[in-house]
Design a protein around this nucleic acid. Structure first.
Length: 602
DNA sequence: CAGCGGACTTAGGACTGACCTT
DNA sequence: AAGGTCAGTCCTAAGTCCGCTG
């Protein structure tokens, strides 16, 4: 099987090269990842060509958040009604809290407890003796100070604002770029994360903990040996300088909340990131070629005698059909309680023999990534239903649904089915295929550009819904919807008026029949047409807005939809690509922009 | 050979600033 | 000038998956 797919891969790559002769020479196709088993003799070569990410890397290191500036004397903190002058360290942490005072987040008990306990660690022994309870602390004067400061900044005269802007631009020019293999590339995040209070999403056990300041002494620099090594800020030194060209990051440090590593990395517009993006979609396209076979296999496995195999087959069905995430295990108490497919628990599903006029309905209700709720009722094939029943037998609500399955074992199996296949590839594959199908179904060649864009957004929306990409209803939604409706109403009135005028002009022309009345008639006709056009555009906008209220389109557009599908669609239907992708998005998808002709098929 | 940490992708919300109206 | 609105940008948390290690 491997050999067959390698052949397919080469053909695909070749086809891509032909589309883009100008790029192929410099870029090269993404390389297929090979396992040692496949090609033992070629392994050394693979190591040098596949794992190596760059030959030259030079940059300025991260830009550090400015040192803490103590509050002016007039800004006081009160404990139990009395002003208390805090030590600098304790004051700094207090300002973190004070800045957030108006956020609902800070009222949560976990947040307050975590904050207070971490704050006490920064206090002097004296302060600890006095400051015993958070509810006796009064940060309002501090809070007001920061609010005023923000307002003052906003109210700055134009020239001052211009100066600030120029300073920021200078900083970006200085720190925001690196040289990678001779090319100047944008860096994604060139600043270290400033200290503050940790804000996890959902019910996070660590919310409110103090995220400490990052110093050069925490930072590992990664750059090429012969490059100009970045200078640490005066009086400081780097934790380490290394030259590891098998990784893409420029600098890293360990963060103190989860003790995970944070990185300074390239911007998505960079060549290296672009190549990886391309590679991701090529893997998804290879899945298209084998997905039928994989589907028949997991169907067969629903009847397997081996429980492990059955669970794997049912989980894979859910991942494929519902675009669920893999669902790695998480350490309890370290993060919010969220799940994906493999980590689903009995409490997260309910089985209905019949519901909504359909048979074998499974109701899902769980918190997924970012504690976004996944709530869905879906009819499934009977053997799936029966298997789920079986997996739930004699279990408690808190038990794992798939107790014999891990993401590692699932991915290992997938790897055997297709080189490079993992659970998340199904999401990419199904998202892209859905976009392509929906565009096909929804687009009318005769439509106006506005109507075509509405169709595009609808296709995009179908994917976002599949992937459960939600957003909070924008705070100004009601208001802005109302404004739009008013505009529509006004436009309708104008339209009615224009109709009357056209009629009048028509009658006038019929009686008079001269050139002047004709040109007036034509003019009225044009006005009417223009108004109709504007109304159609507004209505489309309103529909789009309403349907999009709680759906986030950006995530799928940026991460799941092969840009070549959209670009091909734009070319085929004469929609300017700028209507679909803004400047940043076009930069990210540069790799695809010239590659996809109008006949590109995912 | 599981468990863990590192590296990288995916994610939603906050913030910003350009543009428009009042 | 002030205030409102919105797209675009920034931010960093939270996933996935891999490779190393004991």
């Amino acid at each position: 099987m491997r050999v067959v797919w390698a052949g397919r891969w080469l053909r695909t790559a070749y086809a891509l090269f032909r589309d883009t002769p100008q790029r192929s020479a410099s870029r090269g196709a993404p390389r297929q990842r090979r396992t040692q088993k496949d090609c033992r003799a070629g392994w050394e070569e693979e190591k040098s060509t596949d794992r190596v990410k760059w030959r030259q890397l030079e940059h300025r290191g991260p830009y550090f958040s400015p040192a803490y500036e103590p509050l002016p004397d007039g800004v006081r903190f009160f404990y139990d009604g009395k002003p208390v002058k805090l030590s600098v360290a304790a004051e700094e942490v207090a300002t973190f809290y004070a800045k957030m005072l108006d956020r609902e987040y800070t009222t949560k008990e976990v947040f307050q407890n975590n904050f207070f306990s971490d704050w006490q660690k920064e206090m002097t022994a004296e302060e600890r003796k006095v400051i015993k309870h958070l509810d006796k602390c009064d940060f309002t004067e501090m809070h007001r100070y920061f609010v005023d400061k923000a307002a003052a900044r906003k109210a700055l005269p134009r020239e001052e604002k211009q100066k600030l802007k120029e300073a920021a631009e200078k900083l970006r020019q200085e720190f925001g770029y690196c040289i990678l293999d001779g090319h100047r590339e944008k860096i994604g995040n060139f600043k270290t994360e400033p200290p503050g209070l940790f804000q996890g999403r959902g019910d996070h056990p660590k919310m409110g903990m103090v995220k400490r300041r990052i110093l050069p002494e925490d930072v590992v620099i990664n750059c090429s040996r012969d490059s100009k090594i970045p200078e640490p800020p005066v009086g400081h030194q780097w934790k380490e300088v290394r030259s590891d060209n098998t990784v893409m990051w420029l600098a890293s440090w360990k963060e103190n909340i989860q003790s995970s590593v944070k990185y300074i990395t390239l911007n998505p517009s960079s060549k290296l990131k672009g190549e990886k993006d391309w590679q991701k979609y090529e893997i998804a396209r290879r899945l298209k070629g084998v997905v039928d076979e994989i589907r028949s296999q997991y169907r067969a496995d629903w009847k397997s005698r081996e429980m492990k195999r059955r669970q794997r087959a049912v989980a894979l069905y859910l991942i494929d059909k519902l675009a669920l995430r893999a669902g790695n295990e998480k350490e309890e108490g370290e993060a919010a309680d969220t799940v994906g497919c493999c980590s689903l628990r009995v409490e997260h599903i309910r089985l209905h023999p019949a519901a909504d006029g359909q048979e074998h309905v499974v109701e899902f209700d769980f918190l997924g990534k970012d504690s976004i709720r996944y709530c869905n009722r879906v009819p499934v094939e009977k053997p799936v239903y029966k298997n789920l029943q079986l997996f739930m037998e004699n279990k408690d609500l808190g038990d794992d649904l798939f107790d014999r399955l891990t993401t590692a074992s699932l991915n290992k199996h997938l790897q055997d089915l297709m080189d490079g296949l993992t659970a998340k590839v199904f999401r990419t594959y199904n998202a892209s295929v859905t976009l392509q199908e929906q565009l096909q179904v929804l687009t009318c060649a005769e439509d106006s550009i506005a109507a075509k864009i509405l169709s595009y957004n609808r296709a995009n929306r179908a994917v976002a819904i599949l992937c459960n990409h939600q957003r909070a209803t924008p705070k100004t939604f009601e208001k802005s919807m109302q404004n739009l409706q008013t505009k529509i109403k006004v436009k309708k009135e104008q339209l009615a008026e224009a109709r009357v005028e056209l009629k009048r002009a028509k009658a006038d022309h019929e009686t008079r029949g001269d050139g002047k009345s004709r040109s007036l008639l034509e003019k009225k006709r044009r006005v009417l047409e223009k108004l109709q056009d504007q109304l159609a555009r507004l209505s489309a906008q309103a529909t789009d807005k309403e349907e999009n209220k709680q759906v986030a389109l950006g995530t799928s557009k940026l991460n799941y939809l092969d840009p070549r599908i959209s670009i091909a669609w734009c070319k085929r239907f004469r929609v300017p690509v700028e209507k679909i992708y803004n400047k940043t998005q076009r930069e990210k998808f540069t790799w695809a922009l010239n590659m996809a002709g109008e006949d590109f098929e995912f």
